[in-house]
């Protein structure tokens, strides 16, 4: 079996075992090219990563919302030994107002702290992942 297929199978098993039903739903939404997380209907708190309950008030009255399209680069780096992406593998945390900081793959030239970026999708190892591209000024 080829290595990418092994990583794909292990990833799916890892998501199932170390996640919960909200994690599986998050990846199902990504497959439909929707980038979603959970919001509490009682206290309006937004959690990322998504959960089936609110970490603020512990209510289970939650809904799924789309994550705002744009955010700003909080910090970034690159990995030279990562398995999933081809070098240069630039990853970073994007700050999205009202939601949180999200680890993602960054694409674009000359990325800097504070750059405006917007989400898109990329198929990797049998999964659909979110990535963020630099917004051209």
């Amino acid at each position: 079996m080829d290595i990418r297929e092994i990583i794909s199978r292990a990833s799916k098993e890892g998501i199932r075992h170390y996640g919960d039903s909200a994690t599986l739903k998050f990846y199902d939404f990504l497959k439909e090219r929707k980038f979603m997380t959970t919001k509490c209907r009682d206290c309006s708190n937004i959690d990322f990563p998504p959960r089936n309950f609110c970490t603020n008030c512990f209510s289970e009255n939650i809904e799924w919302i789309e994550i705002p399209k744009r955010g700003r680069v909080y910090a970034f780096t690159n990995q030279k030994r990562a398995l999933r992406f081809v070098y240069p593998d630039i990853i970073g945390f994007v700050e999205i107002e009202g939601v949180g900081r999200i680890l993602t793959k960054l694409e674009g030239e000359d990325i800097k702290i504070g750059d405006e970026v917007e989400w898109d999708f990329q198929e990797v190892d049998g999964l659909t992942l979110h990535i963020f591209r630099k917004v051209k000024s």
Binding site: A10, S11, Y18, P49, R84, F85, D89, L103
Partner: peptide, 15 residues
């Protein structure tokens, strides 16, 4: 790696 870095971050190759 998915155990250690979680089912969200580890998909970005955190090793």
């Amino acid at each position: 790696q998915i155990n250690l870095y979680g089912p969200f971050d580890s998909m970005y190759g955190i090793g």
